[in-house]
Simulated assay, not measured.
Amino acid sequence: MTLRSGLWLPIFDELADPVVVSRLAAEAEESGWDGLFVWDHVRWRAPIRAVADPWITLAAAATATQRLRLGPMVTPIARRRPVKLARETATLDRLSGGRLILGAGLGSDRFGEEYSRTGEELDDRVRAAMLDESLAVLTAAWTGDPVRHRGEHYVVDDIAFEPTPVQAGGVPVWIAGFPGNVAPMRRAARHDGFFPVNLQDADQLAAAVDAVHGLRAERGATGPFDVVAALVPGTDPAPYAAAGATWWLTDFEPDAVTVDAVRGVLRDGPAA
């Protein structure tokens, strides 16, 4: 199986300018990279000061490229309204010609206090329920059929979301979570990919791959399924590909990443 390569950028400080990121996206495409993914935050701890919006940044990157897969990696969906996200994802997928991937997860208040300082939900279990409910709304919305949803957290009363995404079946969804945590793996098994965060080594990835594929087998799931490994630039991705990764993403340190550092990595080229 081919291992695809993606730049994964914390869009902070020097990278908080969508014009800069769109230029990097164009350079990455020219250098043979397969994807460009961005962090989704409204705040980060000091010394970070500037933070860009991921959706505007991705729209700029979409117009500067023709082939790169694009997406937020990851969006903490519980702090976004699912009907708004349905419109944003479908619109960006059409703008990009069907290249959007939606990374989704719980998020955390740990690094930027972006939930506690804005009155967002802090309880992980509640956010998990909001995440699952939002994903159900999105999946229904992407069909173009009227959505009739009345849940614990959201209501959608007979609304059809058109135009639909370009991609048949809707936008692929990759679920992020800690590799030893069963809940995100079960969630991933219902969708299109798993992004195990804070990987320690390839053996840990292999165990996560076995677990999530077992959960998919229980559901009778078939078809393509992606597994993502985020690795510090310079790490050999081969053991992770052997463990089952289908994508590797560049894991830059958010407090230290610069445009020059990103440009150096992208010019080194994607994985062979």
Rank of each mutant, 00 (worst) to 15 (best):
K84V: 12
L215V: 00
A129D: 14
P10S: 05
R216Y: 11
G119N: 09
H153T: 05
L85D: 09
E152P: 04
D157R: 13
S96W: 03
G220K: 09
R79C: 03
V182T: 14
R186S: 05
V209M: 11
T65V: 01
S96K: 13
R81S: 14
D124P: 08
F178N: 15
L85A: 10
P72W: 09
R110T: 14
A28T: 05
T143H: 07
N181M: 12
A245Q: 01
S5W: 05
R45P: 00
I48L: 06
R67H: 06
A90D: 04
Y240F: 12
T118F: 13
A202V: 10
P47S: 08
A52T: 06
A52R: 09
G214P: 04
L95R: 07
R79W: 03
A78Q: 11
R99T: 07
A141V: 06
A140S: 13
A78T: 02
D203Q: 14
A16Y: 07
H191F: 12
V147A: 01
D53T: 03
A256T: 14
G151Y: 02
L15P: 11
F252I: 00
V126N: 12
L205V: 02
S116W: 05
L92D: 05
R117T: 15
D255A: 15
V197H: 10
R127W: 08
V42T: 15
R219L: 15
W44Q: 13
E218K: 11
A183H: 10
V197W: 06
V21G: 13
L100G: 02
S22H: 10
D53M: 08
G170W: 04
T57M: 01
D124M: 13
A217Y: 01
V182C: 02
T246W: 03
P224M: 10
V197R: 06
L7E: 00
F161D: 00
A160L: 05
G244D: 02
H41D: 00
F252C: 05
P179N: 07
L102Y: 12
R4W: 00
A243Q: 05
F37D: 00
R45M: 01
D93W: 07
P47A: 03
R79K: 12
P76W: 06
M185S: 10
R67P: 00
E113M: 12
A188P: 04
V38Q: 10
A189D: 00
R216A: 12
P54E: 07
R43D: 06
V265K: 03
A202T: 11
V20I: 12
A26C: 03
V42C: 05
D124T: 15
S31Y: 11
A241G: 09
V227K: 11
P270W: 03
A230D: 04
T89Y: 03
L205S: 01
G35R: 12
A272I: 06
F37W: 12
D93S: 12
Y115Q: 09
G169D: 05
E88Y: 07
G223A: 07
G214N: 11
D145Q: 15
F161S: 13
G119I: 11
L131V: 01
R23I: 01
A86Q: 08
A208K: 12
T2A: 13
G107V: 04
G177K: 06
E29Y: 06
